[in-house]
Design a protein around this nucleic acid. Structure first.
Length: 641
RNA sequence: GGGCUCAUAGUUCAGUUUGGAUAGAAUGGCUGCCUGCGGAGCAGUUGGUCGAGGGUUCAAAUCCCUCUGGGCCCGCCA
């Protein structure tokens, strides 16, 4: 992978020039250009020297190129040293622009991709163990489109970290002891909802759509029912009783349905953490002692919070953690969990094999029953970094958790990070289509309780149907089951790409009509480019060997080549910044470059056999790189669409 | 009231971390391109006082300040 090597060579060159001129302390940039007419790589060093010496940037740039850089390039060529720099020229604006040597880039990039299966993998993780928590949907409803954003961010991050030699473990936190589950129990026991509805509806959708939202409507007029909720919640907290067993049964059943949707979206998990186990094993008491000892918690002696244990920090106002009656508040659940993730409290749980997963891995779950141990499991609770993916509404609480960890660890390396993202809302059009009244607003926040939701499976099903129609236009001779499998691959890739390509701190206004588009900057566009490359490779009878890299000449070839050669930089950038979007943008750019190449440059119809081999090598490399990118994005590289 | 965050083409968004060259895509509208390696594609055209104002700078969508508008958070609820 040599785009980076090109940048590094230019950095060395500039550094040497500055050294001979006796200039130091200049923090210049060597970076990609914004446009091809400016070459491939550019530096702003002339601007910065201009500042120091009161010479014009343009003069300096010209001086550098004529008197220094050209010598270097000529020297490299005459000495047959393998330089990646082809040429350099000063731009009147003051930049020094470089063009890379296509032959040398092609030679090293394509050779490496074609011969080394681990070509763009990086070691920035150095084996570091990272816990990623994502999804964590309350087990009383089905996943809606907003939950999918969470899942896709987390799962892409998992794939990204695995590619960069981190050791990621994925947790899905199941709040099986909260109010939401109590609402379902109330619905089944006291509001006449049958547990087994006769409909073909998925159980999680039934619970969320029918029971949960309807029960919440009933509360407003039925004081007695609201009273029942308090009773049920108490029973759940105490455990053991029939009511609590029913709650457990229901939440497990909903969870099983939720997991089907998660797995449909090709998400991988390592462990289900049940909140009830954290509560039942009394993690809070141990945590409480530690926090008191370290002085993170202080006992308020006066004012309105008198007799409460609070966290006093700069990040927020005083936060009550233990009430004056000695009971713990909500945040007290999050703190032990965070400490457990980083191994700061002893492991409280045993683990059993919950089920097998779509990717042939095992999904484990916590249990307090020592006898249920079922085989070797990874070490779950002692990560060096914990990344928690929750939407930005939780930012303040998560900041507080980070603060607590920081107070306990000091400058140690362990780290708790909240990866925040803005929620997904429904566009006014989509809300109207669903018969929801949102007034004059442009969008509506989703709410399971209010029934303002678009379910993930619903959107996937429509996408599937639409993709199937398109497929049948082109492949009507194939078997129906094969066509359906392809439609499913397209639907899933489309949804994942759609929810990962945007910036995390931008609210997504979900429009069902727009989300069904299969054209333009969408998943299918990327998959189509890949499928095209497959047709070429499939029809070719030529062996890709003895490649003559010097025949690379067309703009469409070099521009595709350079894009391919950036993969390693992109992966590192995305992983370092925990920013999966970078990879999605890259995938799109790569597909655009390939489609351009495909239109402009014939491969199989090229008369020169040496050029055919070279172009095949380029197509093959594109295939391999695109496949790798798809793998990280959780998209399917389809040989045929 | 305090805090966080967003604002770029009719619409949805890149670009802001690390200031730099004529501000890029997609979509929509209009118009071309299939006997050709698959048209889920390609090309052209239309469309922007980068929310407003000030400041710093040779240079600001990008950095700083003020303001406006949208969203979120701020309970001895969970």
């Amino acid at each position: 992978m040599t785009f980076r090597a090109g940048i590094e060579e230019i950095c060395r060159l500039i550094a040497n020039i500055l050294k001979t001129l006796g200039i130091d302390g200049v923090k210049y940039d060597v970076m990609q250009t914004t446009k091809t007419e400016f070459g491939d790589i550019t530096t702003n060093v002339a601007f910065l020297i201009a500042k120091k010496t009161s010479r014009k940037p343009n003069d300096i740039a010209r001086d550098f190129v004529e008197n220094r850089i050209k010598l270097y390039i000529d020297d490299s060529k005459s000495a047959r040293r393998s330089s990646l720099i082809e040429s350099a020229y000063p731009h009147p604006a003051g930049y020094i622009n470089f063009k890379l040597n296509a032959t040398n880039i092609a030679s090293s990039t394509l050779t490496e991709i074609l011969s080394n299966p681990h070509f763009a993998e990086s070691n920035i993780g150095n084996g570091k163990s990272v816990i990623i928590e994502h999804t964590s949907v309350n087990p009383n409803k089905a996943l809606h489109i907003g939950h999918v954003r969470n899942l896709v961010i987390g799962d892409t991050l998992y794939r990204l970290l695995r590619m960069t030699n981190h050791n990621p473990i994925v947790l899905n936190y199941v709040d099986d002891s909260g109010l939401q589950v109590a609402d379902l129990v109330v619905g089944f026991l006291f509001a006449g909802f049958p547990i087994d509805s006769n409909r073909s509806q998925k159980f999680d959708i039934y619970c969320g759509d029918e029971v949960y939202s309807k029960v919440n409507e009933l509360y407003t007029n039925d004081k007695d029912l609201a009273e029942k909720r308090r009773f049920v919640l108490k029973e759940i907290e105490l455990g053991q009783s029939d009511v609590s067993k029913l709650a457990s049964h229901i939440s497990r059943r909903v969870l099983a349905e939720q997991l089907k949707t998660c797995w449909r979206l090709r998400a991988h998990y390592d462990l289900l953490n049940f909140e009830s186990h954290i509560l039942a094993s009394n993690q809070w008491n141990k945590t409480f002692e530690i926090l008191k000892k370290k002085g993170v918690l202080v006992l308020e002696t006066e004012g309105k919070n008198k007799d409460c244990w609070i966290i006093r920090s700069k990040v927020t106002d005083d936060k009550i953690v233990v009430r004056s009656d000695g009971t713990a508040t909500y945040i007290a659940k999050d703190i032990p969990y965070a400490l457990w993730k980083l191994g700061l409290i002893p492991d409280y749980s045993h683990y059993y094999k919950f089920s097998d997963q779509w990717d042939n891995s095992i999904l484990w779950a916590t249990t307090l029953d020592a006898k249920s141990y079922s085989g070797d499991h990874p070490k779950f609770n002692s990560a060096e970094v914990a990344v928690t993916i929750i939407d930005s509404r939780q930012s303040k609480l998560q900041d507080l958790v980070s603060y607590v960890i920081f107070k306990l660890m000091g400058t140690d390396t362990k780290e708790y990070k909240h990866l925040a993202y803005e929620p997904v809302t429904l566009s006014s059009n989509t809300a109207k289509m669903l018969g929801l009244d949102i007034g004059k607003k442009d969008f509506a926040h989703m709410s399971g309780r209010k029934g303002v939701v678009v379910y993930a499976d619903y959107v996937l099903d429509i996408l599937h149907t639409k993709a199937l129609e398109e497929i049948k236009k082109r492949r009507d001779h194939s078997e129906e089951t094969l066509l359906r499998a392809s439609a499913e691959d397209i639907a899933i890739s489309a949804m994942r790409y759609n929810l990962i390509k945007q910036d995390l701190d931008k609210m997504i206004t979900f429009d069902i009509t727009e989300s069904l588009s299969l054209e333009g900057d969408t998943g299918p566009y990327l998959q189509y480019a890949y499928a095209r490359s497959q047709r070429i490779l499939e029809k070719s009878r030529v062996e890709i060997s003895n490649i003559n890299f010097s025949l690379l000449s067309d703009e469409s070839e070099t521009s595709l080549l350079l894009e391919i050669s950036k993969l390693d930089m992109i992966i590192e950038d995305a992983a370092k910044n925990l920013n999966p979007k970078i990879l999605a943008r890259y995938a799109y750019k790569l597909a655009v470059k390939f489609n351009l190449f495909y239109e402009k440059t014939p491969v199989l119809r090229e008369p020169n056999p040496e050029k055919v081999v070279l172009r095949l090598a380029l197509v093959k490399s594109f295939e391999i790189v695109m496949k790798k990118v798809f793998e990280i994005l959780g998209m399917v590289a389809m040989a045929i669409m």
